[in-house]
Design a protein around this nucleic acid. Structure first.
Length: 572
RNA sequence: GGGCCUGUAGCUCAAUGGUCAGAGCAGGGCGCUCAUAACGCCUUGGUUGGGGGUUCGAGUCCCUCCGGGCCUACCA
């Protein structure tokens, strides 16, 4: 039994996430976590809300709430949605937790004492009207290159030219619109990533089998231009982990907090500590996952994230852990995803374009979304959600291939033998062949799941479901029942057991439906089918069951049309 | 501008440099009647974006052009 540590990129706190966010990290991470647990491994699956930074403060202000209250509320909302989607986190923490404050400050001090933090004075735009320093993108003005009047301080979206806020003509605050902006001096801590460049480069070279998307982004940052640059790790904000604290090896950082991207990954560790606290366990309980001197050398650590998160997980966070000089567990595999687009464009929070997690659950059970999103996960390139494709995939795969199989088998049995696993008859060559096909298919499925090949896994699972329909067609118990009822009994006994096996192996993808099947089968034996022949005898002769309600109702054309209109958002 | 990814059947995607480029869906035909008008079998469909090159052999490697996407360090 292996120990597997799984983290999903942390969803940002400032609103409900859309399906693109979900499929980029939390959902595939959940698939992997569920699968590994089902295979009997010890899993620690961690996620948390990412609560610091300028957007959180602005969102709180817009909501008219103190930022702490706003974050607490949004954490609760996101946690409920995660539960609604069946995301099986062992703990869903908060980056604003006391544990993260303490650990972030601890690691910063370690880095400071190792000489890996420098204090740099720089000049940044300050807005007296807003009472805050403004990140580059929160300054708008006219692009000096193309004349676009709503260019942002980091880049003009019209001509794509990279800008500095001071380049803008008629700069103004994107928040208040105030043109009263001034350059103010401010001091910040910088993480001296450049000093760890070779170490990081060698570490990444030593990893094998990482997705191209992961390594190419890391290599770009390591070798582009002057190479890996130092990174500011503090901000002039109120809400966050204070950068000045007892024992800090620097001074003058009063009123500043650590940069959200410094403390967010640390929350992976802190959340595991939060888990231990919640369980009433001592520090050794979480340290055995994270400290290589406490047993974490045996842990396999896998991170899931969208491609925009890769630089922080391949460089900044490892630099933080390595630079601390302490024996922290580093990631073993980074599974990164491209983006999911929505019907010809991008999901857009501001335009209300696309489907968001709360809306999705209002329309359909989580399994529909889980199945479509995972079977179309943007692994090799960006992929696209369309209602036509969603309807077709869900109706065909879930309703017709799997749902109908369960329905036809259970209803036939009830009609001919009663709602019990029928006795009598023996298996023959047809069943031998079915088992051989299932074994081959299951091996393929497991190989894909082990390798986190998400789409491939979904294909393999579907192919396993199809075997059930093929078997029924050939066995034709409705026909054999007339000539040889014992034979029909053996066939249906096989089919009922097959349904149970499907529930077990499908559970990582569609946990809700799997649970309903198991409930209908009156079975709670979720053990993974190591020996298929034995697994197909788990429901003994005479075992009672219920015919479940329709597992997956089909999406109608009318529904599809209405939803497509409702979520189109405001066209630009 | 630079870097990376991508382009394969109507659609969504496969294919360690090696049999006739394969699946699912959609389309066509046949079968079955247990089932959510579901299932099974057969089948149509391709100059692998264009062009050049390397090779006994290229969807795969190289060059070039065209299209789509992402990243580019102060959003997270």
């Amino acid at each position: 039994m292996a120990r597997i540590l799984i983290t999903s990129a942390l969803p940002y706190i400032n609103g409900i996430k859309h399906l693109g966010n979900l499929v980029g990290s939390q959902l595939p991470a959940d698939l992997y976590a569920r699968y590994m647990r089902a295979r009997g491994h010890e899993v620690m699956f961690i996620c948390a809300t990412d609560e610091h930074g300028t957007p959180a403060e602005l969102a709180a202000a817009k909501a008219g709430k103190p930022v702490a209250a706003y974050c607490a509320e949004m954490h609760r909302v996101q946690a409920e949605l995660a539960q609604g989607f069946g995301l099986s986190f062992d703990f869903y923490g908060r980056s604003s937790s006391a544990r993260n404050h303490a650990l972030t400050q601890h690691l910063a001090r370690q880095l400071g004492e190792a000489g890996l933090i420098s204090v740099i004075t720089e000049r940044q735009m300050y807005s007296p009207a807003d009472g805050r320093f403004l990140p580059d993108r929160y300054i708008e003005g006219t692009c000096p290159n193309c004349g676009y009047e709503r260019a942002r301080g980091d880049q003009c979206e019209e001509c794509t030219k990279q800008l500095d806020p001071t380049d803008l003509i008629n700069p103004r605050s994107a928040i208040s619109g105030s043109t009263d902006l001034e350059l103010r001096e401010t001091r910040h801590l910088f993480l001296r990533q450049s000093a760890l460049r070779e170490t990081l480069d060698k570490w990444i070279d030593s990893q094998t089998g990482w997705p191209v998307l992961t390594t190419s982004i890391a290599k770009k940052w390591l070798h582009d231009g002057d190479g890996l640059q130092d990174r500011g790790i503090t901000r002039d904000l109120d809400w966050g982990v204070p950068a000045q604290f007892d024992g800090a090896p620097w001074e003058g950082m009063e009123g500043k907090v650590f940069y959200v991207w410094f403390d967010a990954p640390i929350e992976y560790i802190a959340a595991t500590a939060e888990w231990a606290d919640a369980q009433g366990l001592d520090d050794s309980a979480w340290q055995r996952w994270w400290r290589t001197d406490q047993g974490a050398d045996d842990v396999r650590y896998v991170e899931f994230m969208g491609k925009d998160n890769v630089p922080f997980h391949t460089l900044s966070f490892p630099a933080t852990l390595i630079g601390s000089g302490e024996p922290w567990k580093l990631v073993d595999y980074i599974k990164s995803f491209n983006y999911l687009n929505y019907d010809g464009g991008q999901f857009s929070t501001s335009q209300g374009r696309g489907v968001f997690m709360d809306q999705a659950l209002d329309l359909l059970p989580a399994d529909y979304w889980r199945w479509w999103l995972l079977s179309h996960a943007p692994e090799n390139s960006d992929s696209e959600f369309t209602w036509e494709n969603f309807q077709a995939s869900v109706n065909k795969d879930l309703a017709d291939v799997l749902g109908n199989l369960v329905s036809r088998v259970t209803k036939f049995c009830r009609a001919k033998f009663g709602a019990v696993v029928p006795a009598g008859g023996d298996c023959g060559p047809l069943e031998d062949r079915l088992i051989a096909d299932l074994e081959a298919g299951l091996r393929s499925y497991q190989t894909a799941m082990d390798a986190m090949m998400v789409r491939r896994s979904a294909q393999d699972l579907r192919a396993l479901w199809v075997l059930g329909n093929e078997y029924l067609q050939e066995a034709a118990p409705w026909s054999t029942f007339k000539s040889d009822p014992d034979r029909a009994a053996a066939q249906i006994r096989m089919a009922l057991n097959l349904i149970r096996v499907y529930a077990v192996i499908s559970q990582p993808f569609i946990p809700g439906a799997a649970a309903r099947i198991m409930e209908a089968m009156a079975c709670d034996d979720w053990s993974w089918p190591g020996d298929l022949r034995a697994a197909l005898g788990a429901l003994p002769q005479g075992h009672g069951f219920d015919v479940p309600d329709v597992l997956f109702a089909k999406i109608t054309d009318d529904q599809r049309t209405e939803w497509a209109e409702r979520f189109a958002g405001t066209r630009s």
